[in-house]
Design a protein around this nucleic acid. Sequence first.
DNA 1: TAGCAATTGTCTCACGTTGTCATAAGCGGA
DNA 2: TCCGCTTATGACAACGTGAGACAATTGCTA
Lengths: 364, 364
Amino acid sequence: MPQASEEGGAAKGVAVALGLVIVAPIGNCPTKAIALSTQREIARRAKTSLKTVSRVINRDPLVNAETRARIEAIIAETGYEPSQAARMMRSQRSNVIGFLADGVATTTSSIDLVRGAQDVAWERGKQMMLFNIERGTQSADMADSQLAAFRAEAIIYAAIFHQEVDIAPTGVPHVLLNCFDKSGRHAAVVPDDYQLAFELTRIIYERGYRRPVFLNLGTDIVASHLRGKGFVDAARAAGYEASGRMHTAVLSPAGAPTKFGTRAILAEVLGADEKPDLILCGQDIMAMNVYFELGELGLKPGRDIAVASFDNLDPIAGLLQPGLSTMELPYYDMGRAAMTLAIDGAKEGQTLRLKGKFIERHSL
Amino acid sequence: MPQASEEGGAAKGVAVALGLVIVAPIGNCPTKAIALSTQREIARRAKTSLKTVSRVINRDPLVNAETRARIEAIIAETGYEPSQAARMMRSQRSNVIGFLADGVATTTSSIDLVRGAQDVAWERGKQMMLFNIERGTQSADMADSQLAAFRAEAIIYAAIFHQEVDIAPTGVPHVLLNCFDKSGRHAAVVPDDYQLAFELTRIIYERGYRRPVFLNLGTDIVASHLRGKGFVDAARAAGYEASGRMHTAVLSPAGAPTKFGTRAILAEVLGADEKPDLILCGQDIMAMNVYFELGELGLKPGRDIAVASFDNLDPIAGLLQPGLSTMELPYYDMGRAAMTLAIDGAKEGQTLRLKGKFIERHSL
DNA sequence: TAGCAATTGTCTCACGTTGTCATAAGCGGA
DNA sequence: TCCGCTTATGACAACGTGAGACAATTGCTA
């Protein structure tokens, strides 16, 4: 901590010197009672037996209402919580579900994967243990060890973008989130990228746009292929051929820092005879880039040319001017679905594809 | 005695044979061995005692090298991990540090708070249990209960922006992260907002800018006050009076969806006799807004007028065109510092202020 | 008075691990 | 042969919880 500057006035040196002495009065917390450690202690205070306390905690009906109330009062007063460690020992069930977030937590929208999973875990009385890892590094091994040490009952493995992964099966069932295993060894929850693109394209044609250009993600991206298909199919369903209207607008390989090729593509398509009436971007960040590049060309999104996208990335999509109309990826529901599969069990290789939602703003 | 009978005599071969027969259909996973459950089981396979296995696992030197190798081989082969639950029971130490992220995880940069804390936890052999909560809701109570059930040794409470909070003391020590308690009941780790603004302003004047305008955050924001002071002080240190150059550019109260008042302020200051040569924004998102509004006024940031900001928000700061020069908030180091305090203990009311770093791009 | 239900308590065990203490084997010296 | 010592290993208890078996007590009814 080289950058730290410390506060605390003149007492600093003294306090450090007296560290041990100062520790003693820490327990003097006036607002809340001291947390008691055991049921035995509760029983002692309630002047009853250990077994009766156990009965109350485990909702055994064979307890007198008055006794139950007395014990519950003491439990509430002392803030006692049964020891998870002891419960895990006794019951031989950990109730722990691991969540390995592979780089996930560095983007805002995929936080919703975590939130969805955690909400379900709470609803179902499970403990979710979350680890931010990077695949192939020490962090992944450490997370695995810790989950093994806690005897996790299932593990959710979440990827940062929709991709294929190779996760070796172990003793505990895995659920792949935002990724899948080609061999079908694990259950998976992924966004329905085909549907996302089909639905957005349907809306685009329905609103009268006829010359959309799709600036798609890199060809090594799973979503890219699926969305391209959805785009073309929806156009055909509307009676138009759009297969020539797709461009690859991400130059960097998957996982590397993003390099967009939007500038050159925009120059080309905007210079053509038949000018596009809409730019469909593979992701909101690309759309932001396109906003700037259109601005430099003197074009205002939403007025001179429409823009649409995928992600609904908070807070960018809402803060762009005009607000970006975009297909929201169903991350929260995906998180919920993955945790549900993890708890209830899934058929081997079962894959859930979740639909997205169109978020309307003013760029379309 | 039951161990002795299992180990000895003619039953041995049979037991092993049966063992293989039984194990085979259970663990039909070809890639990795079956995870065994207990040290007793390891001992049985190694034909040794429970205690000797325990010694090997706990690096007790009083074990014959040959015996150690034999046991370690079996442990490696089976992928055995000691049960945390049992260890917690036996040692009466949980090694668990709670991390309550109050809305934190919904912004990218503050993920670094989590990363920093988790890295230190790993380095120190602690288990960090992370909960995304919202203060005052059920989620906060549930997280508290779970941490109590796991007998967490300390709790880190992280806020989404630098603010004062009121956390009642409980039995376990708290470390406040990105927030503080006015009464000084808890240790705290916060960004040194005064330094951030002072340093950025110093650089601004050093580069020859003389008419900066500071579009500060809302007046109810702690950082706002501190940065305003740093701004004015640094200007004075450079020989200029800047107290009249500050505006409040966030109209919404803290925590509510952001409403910027930048448009009106820009119109005013750009219409004045003495036009500003630099717009200093309170946060990168505001800077993004300012980019758009300057664009609509026909001004290009970095060319016609400089822009600087606070946050280094990924990926916005790098993707704006031109890239945004901004003061990075030291979230990763703050997370590390908070976990260090949580593990090693902190003086009551101790406050750590961490300095930020200037990230140079092309808007300045 | 016996019989019964409701309530509470006693006692025991098991979960997996590890600290304490005890035991066993080997070996040199008296 | 015995003692003292080292090295290696094993037996046992206890952490907090929850469950079963069963006894004890009270109050009520047949």
